[in-house]
Design a protein around this nucleic acid. Structure first.
Lengths: 229, 229
DNA sequence: GGGACCTTTCGGCCGGCGTCGAAGAGTGAA
DNA sequence: TTCACTCTTCGACGCCGGCCGAAAGGTCCC
C-alpha cells in the first residue's frame, strides 16, 4: 500500500555503505577495490556491500577489464543522499588532515553532477544578481551568457529532469543550482578548465583561470581557494 | 568532515520506526500508544523506538496529561521521508483492505503539511493552467484568487521555507505544490471544509463541497472519489 | 600457458539491536 | 486515597547482519 522506505534506508544505514555512497556522490564511477579502501573494509566485505546496493537499485555496475566500476543509479539517489545529509549531524573533526579536507569540500565539491559548496552557492547568487536567472527560468541574457560558455541549454531542456531547481547545500545551509541546468553548467565549467576534479571523491578545485572567469561572468567574489591551503 | 548520514538512515531503517514515521507524515501528533498499535509492536518496544527517534532529532514530543504526543521534528524530516519513498519499491498489495486504503491515499493524502496524491497534482496543474502560478511565483491573478480562498500568502512569504517548490509525488511520479505556499493553501482548504482528514494517518478526503469548489477555482477535473469506493 | 591482479563466493565468528513481559513512574478520575 | 490508564525502564532472549580469511572465478600481460 505504501512505498516501503525501510529497506532502502537500511542500505544507507551501514557506515561502510554510507561511506561508499558518499564517495560515489562525486559523480564518477569507482572500482570495487577503491571503494573497499575508502570505506576501510576488506575487499570481501566491500563486495558483499556492493552486491546489496546493486540489488537495492542504489548503484549500477559496469565491468571494464578486470575492474568493476560502480556508480550511483541516478540523480534521484543523489538527491536522497543530499537531503539526508541536510538533517544529519556533522561528524566532529578529529584530525588535521580531516579538517583540511573539510575546508576544501566546503569550498567546492560536486553534488553528484553539479557544483556545490561555497562556489556553488555563489554561482547561483551571481546568476540571480546579474539577472541571468529569474523565478527558476533563464532570462534571454542568461541564455546568451551560458551559450557563450558552451553550456548546452537545449539539451538540458530536453531532459525529463527538473530544469533549474534549488538544491539545498548542507554545508552552507543555502541553495545552489541543481537539476538539468546545474549539471549542464558544471559540465561546461569542467570542459573549459575552470573547474577540475580533486583527488578525494567529491573534491573540486577552482583553477586560477576559473577564478578569474567566474568573477568576470558571475560576479561571485570567489573566496581565494588557493590562499587558504 | 562530512555529514554522517548513516545514523539517521539507521533510525529510518527499522520497519517499526518507518511505519511510525510514515504515520506521522500525516502531519498530526500521535500518542505513543497509537503509534505502537499502528506499527504492531508492544508499548514497551514502541517507547524504545520513540526514544531513539527523539534522540536522533527526527521527532518531537509533547506531554499532555498522561499521553505523550509525538510529531515530526520539521518539514525537512518530512522531505527526507518523501524523497526516500520516491526511490523505494512499492509494497505489493496483499489484502482487500489494503488495496482500498491504497486507492484512497493515491487519490488524496497529506505530505506532512500540504496536499499530495492525484488531488495535489491536479491542484498544481490547475494553478498553472489558469495562470495563477508561473515559474514558481504567484501571478497577480493567483494572488487574488488565493486571497479570496483565505490563504495567508503574506505569512507564507515571511517563512524561511522555500515558497513554492515542486514536491515529487511518489504515487503519481509527478509534482505537486509543496513548501510554504503548499502548506498555506492546504490549511485554507481544510479551514474551508473542502478537505477533511480521514481516519488513517495520512488520509484526506475531498468533500462534496470541495469537489465543486476545486473544480470551479482550479479547473482540476477532480476524479470522483466517492464514486470509487 | 603461467603468473599477477581484481573481484566474488563461502563458511564461521561475533556483536548489536529489536523484541517482549514485568515492574515502576506519572497522571487523571472517583 | 484508591484505582485505572498511559508510558517508560529493566533484564533477558534470539536473530539478523557485518566482518574477515581462504579459496575460487575472470581478466590482462608476458
Amino acid at each position: 500500500m505504501e512505498a516501503d522506505i525501510a529497506p532502502v534506508a537500511a542500505l544507507i544505514a551501514d557506515p561502510s555503505r554510507a561511506t561508499m555512497l558518499n564517495a560515489l556522490l562525486g559523480g564518477r564511477a569507482l572500482a570495487a577495490g577503491e571503494l573497499a579502501r575508502l570505506s576501510g573494509v576488506s575487499p570481501a566485505t566491500a563486495s558483499s556491500h556492493l552486491a546489496k546496493l546493486l540489488e537495492g537499485g542504489l548503484v549500477e555496475a559496469v565491468r571494464q577489464g578486470r575492474h568493476r566500476y560502480y556508480r550511483l543509479a541516478g540523480h534521484e539517489v543523489a538527491e536522497v543522499l543530499e537531503t539526508l545529509a541536510g538533517i544529519s549531524r556533522r561528524t566532529p573533526v578529529t584530525s588535521l588532515r580531516q579538517s583540511r579536507q573539510a575546508r576544501l569540500l566546503a569550498e567546492a565539491r560536486t553534488c553528484y553532477d553539479h557544483l556545490a559548496g561555497r562556489a556553488g552557492v555563489a554561482l547561483l547568487d551571481g546568476m540571480r544578481e546579474r539577472g541571468y536567472l529569474r523565478h527558476g527560468e533563464l532570462t534571454d541574457r542568461g541564455e546568451r551568457v551560458l551559450a557563450d560558455l558552451g553550456v548546452d541549454v537545449a539539451k538540458a531542456r530536453r531532459s525529463r529532469r527538473r530544469f533549474a531547481p534549488e538544491c539545498l547545500d548542507w554545508t552552507e545551509r543555502r541553495a545552489h543550482l541543481g537539476g538539468a541546468l546545474g549539471a549542464a553548467v558544471t559540465e561546461a565549467l569542467m570542459a573549459a578548465g575552470w573547474l577540475v576534479r580533486g583527488r578525494t571523491p567529491r573534491a573540486v578545485v577552482v583553477t586560477e583561470e576559473g577564478r578569474e572567469g567566474l568573477a568576470a561572468t558571475f560576479a561571485c567574489e570567489e573566496p581565494a581557494v588557493g590562499g587558504r591551503l
